[in-house]
Design a protein around this nucleic acid. Structure first.
Lengths: 238, 238
DNA sequence: CGAGCACTTGAAAGATTTCAAGTCCAGTGG
DNA sequence: CCACTGGACTTGAAATCTTTCAAGTGCTCG
């Protein structure tokens, strides 16, 4: 047993704030097709451990993360939990969906989101090929990430999973130093992402610390020997 | 250690056979946008255990399976292997890719494929919104499937994985009787798909047999007590 | 200062894996 | 036609990795 869920989950505390367009130039020819969505977005804040959307909800909105960290969650009847991914500033979610969400999204930390009505996104995509392609590419990248995680969960050892995870977070989390990783999520979240128990996560981290590969201070990990970590991660051939 | 790979993997033994269009009606308004691809397809045969495409290959082709079974494979340096999914008649693959394939595709059994040049697919999608949407939906479904597998690999026990697998195959494999499952893949493939060893797969199957839930005869599994299997699979809440 | 929660660590229990033999066929060659 | 061989599949026993069960520790907050 693990993964007692503290789903707070009622309503978003919405700090609605309709944003003005970046620059009222004549033809702003967006660098990124996704910019087209911007004007239809609303900024909302979701607090730590609150639900953004539930699994099975009608998929009415898509989101881009402005700040903070989000987890996608699948739950089993008995409480076992799998966190599919952690999403951070710049990441988008809610686009890869047909009808209803197939997993919940929850705020790991306090989170600021840009929220877009799906019908807007769909309508825009209908008429804008660039956007359509962009959305498709995003989905494809997600799919490829998921496949890498299948390998991690199916075939890697606990140490390999932790090492992989730390390296991934070092790369993706915003931060001044690439070697200082401020983990927004707790150990339990890490465990439920890597298919381990919280105790195993702690023990392996302690092991890595004893080996001098990392430093640990209150929710902050310092990577001391990246090469050793990379070796331990046993990344895939390709 | 597991997963010694017998990748045969040189060339496709191509039984090229350009197909004529189904019916030369005036405006055949396809029921399925994917039918648009049909005329650009080539039929090829790939034999048992041969590679269809390697991981890292330039993604020049997409495929639809006409008959047989295909596995998608990710390999680690030391030979550990993860089979992402088994694909059967009607399934498509090679569409969810950007540039190069991120996993290999191999023929589990002798396989007949309809092969489409990617540049054709891309070109058609460029001008046909229906096709674009269809491709996107396919990718989304794949992504959702992958997320369910993350839960299976991350949180389910060996018995639960095997039960889930059997039920899934019973549903997806073509066959007269839904309760008679002719598995095209060997135990090792099952193991590498479910993140187990071949011995564990055997033992759990034997267990299910002793419990009267299934029958086993040479590559054929008979489902004797579907309800019990479903219970054992502990499917997700939603 | 005390409570509560997140995180650690230790020890025992368990689920799978690893190591080792078989068994069972299907196909081969005598 | 039938024994033989090799590969796939099974099964047993010991070894391991992780988990489970149990206590701490150490912050943070009230």
């Amino acid at each position: 047993m693990q993964g007692t869920i503290q789903r707070g989950g009622q309503s978003l505390s919405e700090t609605v704030a309709r944003r003005t367009l970046p620059s009222p130039t004549l033809n702003p020819a967006p660098r990124d097709a996704l910019d087209l969505l911007e004007q239809f977005g609303t900024t909302v804040t979701v607090h730590h451990d609150r639900e953004i959307h539930a699994e099975g909800d009608p998929a009415d909105y898509c989101y881009r993360i402005l700040s903070g960290c989000v987890r996608t969650v699948k739950l089993m009847e008995d409480g076992r939990r799998q966190i599919g991914e952690f999403l951070v500033a710049g990441d988008m979610f809610g686009f890869d969906t047909l009808g209803t969400y197939v997993f919940a999204a929850e705020a790991v930390s306090d989170v600021v989101l840009r929220r877009f009505p799906r019908r807007m996104v769909d309508a825009l995509a209908e008429s804008n090929l660039g956007l359509t392609r962009r959305l498709r590419d995003m989905t494809v990248v997600s799919l490829q990430t998921a496949h890498s995680r299948l390998l991690l969960l199916g075939r890697k050892t606990a140490s390999e999973r932790i090492a992989s995870f730390l390296l991934e977070m070092a790369e993706r989390l915003p931060g001044r130093h690439a070697h200082v990783v401020d983990l927004p999520m707790g150990r339990m979240d890490v465990a439920d992402h890597l298919g381990l128990t919280i105790e195993t996560v702690c023990r392996i981290l302690a092991l890595l610390r004893r080996e001098g590969m990392i430093g640990i201070e209150r929710g902050r990990i310092t990577i001391r020997d990246e090469a050793a970590l990379q070796q331990m991660a046993s990344e895939q051939r390709h």
